[in-house]
Amino acid sequence: MSGRRPFLLFTAVAFGYAFLYLPIITLMVYSFNDSRLVTVWGGFSTRWYVELFRNEQILSALWLSVRIAAMNATFAVVLGTLAALTLVRFTQFRTRMLFAGMVTAPLVMPEVILGLSALLMFVSLEQLIGWPEGRGMTTITIAHITFTTAYVAVVVQSRLSQLDGSLEEAAMDLGARPWKVFLVIILPIISPALIAGWLLGFTLSMDDLVIASFVSGPGSTTLPMVVYSSVRLGVSPQVNALATLIVVVVSTGVIIAGWLLHRQQRRHTGKAR
């Protein structure tokens, strides 16, 4: 290979990463700016962090979002795992096509449609049976479960389809019941996928503005909704501080996860040798 090609490639890759990271880094730097103006550097200060932690609206929205996200992730993992099991193991049943279509639909449906359809459903249900009464945390959680289940199903499905079927067959031949096979053999093997699915469900829910805006009611404002309404008015130093905290927490988590994964891989390859 000539010497110029790696250099060009290196430049292209470096440009790509700079593009991905410069905006976030600028945001983080300016969260420590004492001045309210973006143009002026008014010296180092942590006053926006102090104000952020005094901001009742943001704190209560954060708490609501965390509760919704945790509940959503838990339900979505259960439903998504069942859906993935159905798709991988039960290849022959009537209306399977419909089921597979419904599982993948949220991945290709625009969020605005998911939000609108969920809202109209809740309104119709309320008129028919009186439930759900008004809209709020419950309706947001239900709408989130519906779309995150699809993502969890994809993650679990890819893990399930890699599974060695002979293990299950051996267990069944030795008289293990299907549910026991699931609990003792399948579940431990797919547990990394379940954890990944849970985290994915949590993040997707924490991050969702569009669907939550459609199905939320008065008094149930999630964190993205608060951020959105303050951001529409322009740059807000408190949002900069919040963004910095989110980035720091998430990066720490991802780096730890990546490190654990790396170590695990190393151990596996070490064994193989």
Partner: peptide, 18 residues
């Protein structure tokens, strides 16, 4: 992968300041 796990809304917002 990292930016994907951070908030989408905040990544869009970062461009407003720029």
């Amino acid at each position: 992968i990292l930016p994907f796990w951070t908030s989408f809304l905040i990544r869009v917002y970062a461009w407003i300041g720029l």
